[in-house]
Design a protein around this nucleic acid. Sequence first.
DNA 1: TTGTAGGCGTTATCAT
DNA 2: ATGATAACGCCTACAA
Lengths: 339, 339
Amino acid sequence: MATMRDVADLAGVSIATVSFTVNNTKPVSPATRARVEKAMDDLGFRPNEVARALASRRSRILALLYPALQHRFGDTSSRFFTSAARAANERGYNLILSPVSNDSAELGELTTGGLVAGVMLMEVQMDDSRVDRLLSSRTPFLLIGRNRDPSALDYVDIDFENTVKDSLAYLRGLGHTHIALVTGNTGNSEISGYGPVVRTTAAFAAGMAAAGVAPVMVSCDETPRAGRESAAHLLDASPQTTAVIVMNEHAAFGLVSGFTHRGIRVPEDMSILSISSSPDMAAMSDPELTLMASPGIALGRMAVEALIDKLEGHAGQLAHSLIACTYTPGQSTAAARTG
Amino acid sequence: MATMRDVADLAGVSIATVSFTVNNTKPVSPATRARVEKAMDDLGFRPNEVARALASRRSRILALLYPALQHRFGDTSSRFFTSAARAANERGYNLILSPVSNDSAELGELTTGGLVAGVMLMEVQMDDSRVDRLLSSRTPFLLIGRNRDPSALDYVDIDFENTVKDSLAYLRGLGHTHIALVTGNTGNSEISGYGPVVRTTAAFAAGMAAAGVAPVMVSCDETPRAGRESAAHLLDASPQTTAVIVMNEHAAFGLVSGFTHRGIRVPEDMSILSISSSPDMAAMSDPELTLMASPGIALGRMAVEALIDKLEGHAGQLAHSLIACTYTPGQSTAAARTG
DNA sequence: TTGTAGGCGTTATCAT
DNA sequence: ATGATAACGCCTACAA
C-alpha cells in the first residue's frame, strides 16, 4: 500500500531519489541511500509492478506459448515449465502460461497488450506460421525447438543429432549392429514437419549408413498399445534386430510388453533404449528402461536466461543452444548375444 | 502501437467515449459506437493492459502458487495447469505460474506488487501458514485443497470421501471383502498433515468399520520400488486380502509387478484399483489399471471461474466445490474368487 | 548527487 | 450521450 511518495516523504528526499536507489539507475550517496532504505522497510514498501511497467514501457512478464489443444504434458514439459518459472522468478520476472491455437490468432492479443515483454514458443514446427507472426509483431521471442531455418532466430533445443550419435555408440559398444528406431506420430499427422522426429530420423539414417547397415525405422502413436504392435511388426519385418532406440515415451512401455509377450526377453534378447524421456517415466517400466534423459530443467532455465538477456540488452549474440540427452542407466539394455 | 488517443482522433470523439464503448461502461449511441469500432480495427487497436490495470487498480492476472521444491508434476497437476490457463484466457485473464517455498516468504512480493489480482494456492496442507499470510495480505484467494478448517474460505478439491465410498462399493460389488488401502508418503514426512491422505484414510477406515472388517492400510514412497515392497508386505501381513485401493500413482506399478513376481495374478487373484490418478498413467500399466480418474481438468476450470467470479463481484457465496474421481474401466480388477 | 516536472495509456468523476 | 480532466504510481530527461 505504501507508495514511493510515502517513502520519499519519510526519508526526506524526492520521489526521484527513491526511484534511483531502488533501481540503481543513478548514483546515490551512501547516507541518503541508507535513509531511503530504512524508510522503505519501515513502510514495507514494494514498488508497484504495474506502474513501473507503464512508465518504463517494459513489463517483467514472460509468456510461455504452448499448443492450446494439448491437455496433458509429459514429465519433460512439466519440468520445463517449472524450471522456467523458477528461473524467471530468480531474475525478478513472472511467467505466464499461454495456450495458443495453431492458427495463431490469439498471438496478437498477447503481443499487442503491452503486458508481455517477451515470449517463448513451444512445440515449434519445421514450418511454423506463428514464427512469422511473432516476427512481424516486433515482440522479442525465443523458440523452444527449431523451425526449418532458425539461423537468424534465438532458440534452445534438444540436441537430437548428438543424442542419436551417443545412443548408437552406446548400443554398438554393447555389440549391437542391427538397431531399429521407433518414433512417435505427432498427433496432427504433420509428421514430416515435426522437428524432433525429422532430426532424429535423419541422424539415425546417417548413423546407420555410416556403419553400412540398412536403417529400420518405425513410427507409431504415442500409446502403449501402439508400442506393442510395433514390437510385433519389428519381429516380423526385421527379425535380425537386437536393439531398438525409441523416442516415444508411451510406446516404449508397449515395446517391452510386446516383445515379452512374444517370448523375446528384455534385455537378454532385445535391448531397448528410451531417448528423450524422463527418469520417472523410465522407472515405471519393468524392467526399468535404460534412458537418454531429456534436459527439460536445463532447457527451461536456459530459455528464460537467454530471453531476459536479450530483453535487457546484455545479449551479445543470438542464442543457439543445443543440449543433448544424458545417459541414465537402466535394466533394458544388455550386451548383444554372440552367435 | 495505437492508443485510445489515436482512436478518438480518427473517430472524432473524445478519449472518454472510446473508453466507454470499449468497456460498455456507459451508454453510447449506436452511431458513434459504430464510428469508434471502425476506427479501432482500422488502427488495429488493442487496449494497453498495463495502463488499464494501473488506472483501474485491478489487473487481470491470476497467480497459481505451487510448492517451489516440486520439480515434476503428474498428469493430474499438468492437466490442472493447462485447464486453468485456458479457462482464465476465456475470461480475459492471464495465469502466472509461481513457485513459492513453504516458508511462504515470496508470498509478500507477489501480493504486494499490484500485479496480481487473485491467487490460487495448490497443495494446501492441513495446517498451512501460507493461508494465514494470504489472509492478512488482503489478496483474494482460493484454495486447491482444504486446510483443517476451510469453512470460511473458498476452495475446490477432490471429493476423497465419496471417491473412497464409490471405490469400496465397486469392489464389494465384485465380491471383495478384505480390501487394503495403499497411500503415498508426502515426501516431507508431514504425512499427518496432508489432506488427501488424511481424508482418504479416514473415509477408508470408516467404510471398512461399517462393514465390520478391520482396515488394512499401508503407506509408502511414491516409487514403483516402494510399491513392490508394499505388495510383499501385504501378502505377508494380510494374506486374506483380495483387493487393494491405491492412491499412489507410481507405487501402483510396483504393486502390480510385486504381486506378479510373487505368483499372485492381477486381476485373477488380486484386484487393484488406482484412485486419484490419470488415464494416461493407468494405460501404461500391464494390465491396464482400473481407475478412479482425478478431475484435474474440471478442478482447474472451476478454480479460476470461482476466483474470477469473486474478483468481479458476482460471487454470491463462498466456493466450496468437491468433485469425486470418476470410474474408468481397466484390466486390473475382477470378481473375487469364490472359495 | 539530488530535485523538478512531464509523461506512460487508461479509468472514472464531474460537468455539459 | 459525450467531453474535460484529474488521478494511477512510477520513470526519466533535464535542471540545479
